[in-house]
Amino acid sequence: MTSSDTAAETGATLLRLFESRGCRRVETPVLQPADIFIDLSGEDIRRRLYLTQDGQGRDLCLRPEYTIPVCRRHVESGREAGEYCYLGPVFRQRQEGFGEFLQVGAESIGRADPCPADADMLGLALDGYVVGWREPYKARLGDMGLLEAVLDALEVPSSLRRRITRGLAAGKGVKALAGGEAPETSRYAGLLAAIEGQDPKAARAFVEDVISIAGLAQVGGRSAAEIADRFLAKAESRSDLTERSRSVLQRYLAIRGDLDDCADAVRMLAREEGLDLDAALDRFEDRIGFIAARSIDLKRLVFAADFARVLDYYTGFIFEIRQASRPEGWYVAAGGRYDRLFEHLGREGEKRVPVPAIGCSFWLDRFAGAEG
């Protein structure tokens, strides 16, 4: 049996599991509007998309993942809540392996009980892992909501938060706190000051307008959008943390291990530093209780405060699952809560509000290649 056959067989098995748990299978178009992925994932993803244009010049891409298309499908349906699953090819340019590979996953949208929903999705993902692969697993858990609460309590500006989060998502750990203005930014101080702290989409549009007014389509082979994102990155590098904020964040990001022990460590940090983290910590501890109630082996779960996702719409619980023999970061399944995604969806002029949602997806080529 070839690796692609193994991936397809594993995907079909997992799809049946998700359907047996009440998820309805949905399919989405392979061609998707590219702007929503770029707006939410950053300009870096443009280099990994397979791009084309329609007859009106609008950018389209081959579907790079399923979560955003499934959520768009949910919005179009007009339903308040839904449980969905999917299986199909996704397309991303990668340094290794083929650019087309199978992905299977599940999405839970509209549930008003986030902590039980988080535990249910983690349990579903772990059940899927056991069905698809019998080697012992390890799971790393994080909490974007708790990180956000710490940054709120320290009054860290939004542009600096994005820089820190991106650094954490890239695996830099406490090194993500390093900053300071790059020497060359002084040449563009006026423009950088104008966009610093702005919403990324608005700032990108502003820089693109400036370039358009100057009559430039490309500069040095880069498009206006790519240049705009470079300016956004430079603007984020201008600000820096206060000494106290850096010290507190270093302590927070070092917290790792058993879930209950980590909850105690964060409460101690909040008490000693005078941080109001009660609401986020209450959710964290409630989630632990619901996870334990599902008979999940807590010894196989590790909380890591420095585990983060770069996408702006992740709002809370995140996780990834790997084979115990594999290094951290080489995951076969991952998921998380993305309530803010729906603020970016819907038709122009409509009021866009957060919608509680969480999902998980499996990288089937990693299942298929696990023996190699």
Rank of each mutant, 00 (worst) to 15 (best):
T2P: 11
A8E: 13
E9Y: 13
R21Y: 06
Q32R: 05
I38C: 02
L40N: 14
Y50P: 07
T52P: 09
D54Y: 06
D59P: 08
T67P: 09
E83G: 10
Q93D: 12
R94I: 02
Q95M: 09
E96S: 14
E96A: 15
E100P: 03
E100C: 02
F101K: 03
G105A: 01
G128N: 08
V130L: 09
R134F: 03
P136L: 01
Y137H: 14
G167M: 01
L177I: 07
T185M: 14
S186T: 14
I195D: 01
E196V: 02
Q198V: 00
D199Q: 13
F206L: 07
L216F: 13
F231P: 02
A235M: 11
E236D: 15
S237V: 00
T242A: 10
R246K: 12
V248C: 12
V248P: 11
D258N: 14
E273P: 02
L275I: 04
E285W: 08
D286M: 15
G289E: 13
I291A: 07
A292M: 04
L298Q: 10
V302G: 06
G329E: 09
W330G: 15
W330R: 14
R337L: 08
H344L: 06
E350Y: 00
V353M: 10
P354V: 05
C360E: 11
G369H: 14
